[in-house]
Each structure stands twice: as C-alpha cells, then as structure tokens.
Write a protein that binds this DNA or RNA. Structure first.
Lengths: 169, 169
DNA sequence: GCCATTTGCGTAAGTACTTACGTAATGGCT
DNA sequence: AGCCATTACGTAAGTACTTACGCAAATGGC
C-alpha cells in the first residue's frame, strides 16, 4: 500500500479519507486487543467511560460537548453501557431534561481492571508518535482549530471572486 | 472545544477517536461545499472517481487495494455511481470474476466540471497544512506505516512480559 | 482431466457516526 | 401566571465503513 497508495498520493486532496482510514485501522487494532484481554469492552465506549471515571457524573449533553460528538451518539453509547450494566442513569433534579450518567459499581471495577491496559496503549502510542511521527498531535490540534475557525467552504469561497475575475478576461 | 476538549486532553490515548472526529468534520464541510456548487456528487465517491479519471479502467479489487478500503465498500460506491449514471461496469474478458469500472461520458463530464473545485480544495488544504500544521502529511505517512508494520496489539504484547516480571517482585 | 484450493466480488448484516423530528422542561418577558 | 423561544435528549432514519457468507471463476498440483 505504501508504494501504490492512491490516497497517500492524493495528499492534501484526500485528507478526509485519510483520517477515516486511520481511524478504522486503529479501531480494528484496539478491538483485537480487547478481545485478547477477554473483555467485552467496546472501543466506542472509551471516551465516555474515561470521562465518567475522571468527572464522576456527567449529562448526555456535557459528554457530547467534551468528546465532540452529537448527543444522539452519546445516547446510543449510553444505551449500550446501560445494557452492559456499566452505568447508572438518572434525571438531574435541578433540570429534569438532563440525564446524568455515572459509572455503576461494575463499571468502576471494569474501568479499574482496564486502566493498566489503557495506560499501556497510551504509552505505546506515545512512543510510536515520538519516534515515527513527532509533532503529530500538535499538527492535529492546529488543523482542527483552523478548519473550525475558517471552514473549508469559506476558504474556497474566499478564493472564488479572484477566479471569476480571471475567467472574464 | 479547544479549552474543554476531553479527546484532545486524552492525547495519545484517544487517537482513533481523534482521527474519526476529524474525518467527520471534513466530510461535513466538503458536503456543504458540494451543495453550494449545485452538484449531487458525494464525498465518498471522490477516491473512486478520481482513480478512474487517472487510470481509465479499474476492477473492484484494484480500487479497494489502492484506496485502502474493502471490496464491499467499493461495491457499494459502484452501485451508487452506476445509479447516478457516472460509471459503466463490465466483466473482464480475461477473468470473468473481475468487474471493471470506467467512467461513463456523463461521469467524465462531471469529473471535468468538478476538477477546478477539487483543485481549489486541494490548494486550500495545502495552504492550511503548510501554515498551521506543517509536517502533518509526513507524520500521517509514518504513523500509518508504523501501525501496519507493528500493530498496536503486538506492541502492547511486547511490553507485557516485562510487566509480568515486575508484578512478581 | 480432475479436483482441492484460491481468488474476485455481490449481498446481507453489523457498527458507529450523523441529521431530523418530536416531546418535555426551562427561563425570560410581560 | 401565562406565553413562547430556547434547550436537552430520546428515537428514527440515513450514511459510510466493516465482517461474514456464498457463489462463480480461476489456478495449480497430481
């Protein structure tokens, strides 16, 4: 793939596909890792569960905001976690629209059990990035900020008037 | 999100989620751009269509390999492109299992019409990366190569025996 | 030539996100 | 207190990938 990788050759023109592919590849690898560790834990649960570990209690909306997903996605993950007995859900007494998630006793135990594995994955990832892709995280930070501040359509549009003028001559 | 971005704070521990999020964000922006250009073209078609532009005729398997997706995904895209009148499909006379895709006359016209837009997007992307995230592409190259050569589970496993020895003492 | 194995790919089902829709709750204003 | 714009989120449907399965064609060994 390295020598005949069309997407890589497309470079800046296929960044979306590139990120998507990487995401799929990493998820597959982490899934295999979880299977090897005899846990039913799902990769998509990770952001939610670790956020609850760190903060204790969070609403669907808070989770959605801090993870950068829609509330509908968090709702789905919530449903799975609840069925797996990993979380308890209750309405916030101060605002009954808000659904507050907390890890159940089982959820806490499982998170505690998996914490060393997560730490190892983070270590492996850090070493890999440090050695093979230094600066990757900072580059991703800046890229994210740039497309949020000034999205692609606006940037393309900003180039358009000049292009139109050139077409007239 | 920049100040309360849990995934960003998770750094190396949540790279998969990070890449997925970026992919989703870019796809949304490109979709908006296509809508603004009054085309029914879909972001997911881009790799397939541009590969056909450059190579003329390719089989499902060849496209899957060079784009880095499963043949099933290419099959789905093929179905959409066929329904949109963008491609012609025929069995390879030398190996009738192979399905060869080519752009139809309509597909060629549409690709030609969109080529300036694609070039602008690539330019915008290049300028953005050059200015805000220099080295991003090379870092992604090396990251991809690293996890393919030595996947995450193998790396974690390589750390395990040392970890076990430490636990015994 | 025969046949076990491999290859190519269509299709179904699963997975993990999104948007759209609708209902209930909240809070500001009169 | 009532009205209404806004907010929070569950659910359905849509989107874009994957794995699983199955069938046909091709390959290669005997």
């Amino acid at each position: 793939m390295a020598t005949n990788d069309f997407i890589r050759a497309k470079a800046h023109a296929a960044l979306g596909t590139r990120f998507r592919r990487l995401s799929e590849q990493l998820e597959r690898q982490v899934e295999a890792l979880y299977a090897a560790h005899k846990t039913d834990f799902q990769p998509r649960w990770y952001p939610v569960v670790t956020a609850l570990v760190e903060h204790g209690a969070l609403s669907v909306g808070e989770l959605a905001a801090m993870i950068g997903m829609t509330h509908a996605a968090i709702s789905q993950i919530r449903g799975e976690l609840k069925r797996a007995g990993m979380v308890r859900v209750a309405a916030d007494p101060h605002d009954r629209r808000r659904q507050i998630l907390q890890l159940s006793a089982k959820g806490k135990r499982e998170a505690e059990r998996l914490a060393p594995l997560w730490a190892t994955v983070a270590q492996v990832s850090r070493e890999l990035v440090t050695r093979d892709a230094p600066g990757l995280l900072q580059a991703l930070d800046r890229f994210e900020d740039a497309i949020r501040t000034n999205p692609i359509p606006a940037r393309v549009h900003a180039l358009a008037p000049k292009d139109k003028a050139r077409r007239r001559s």
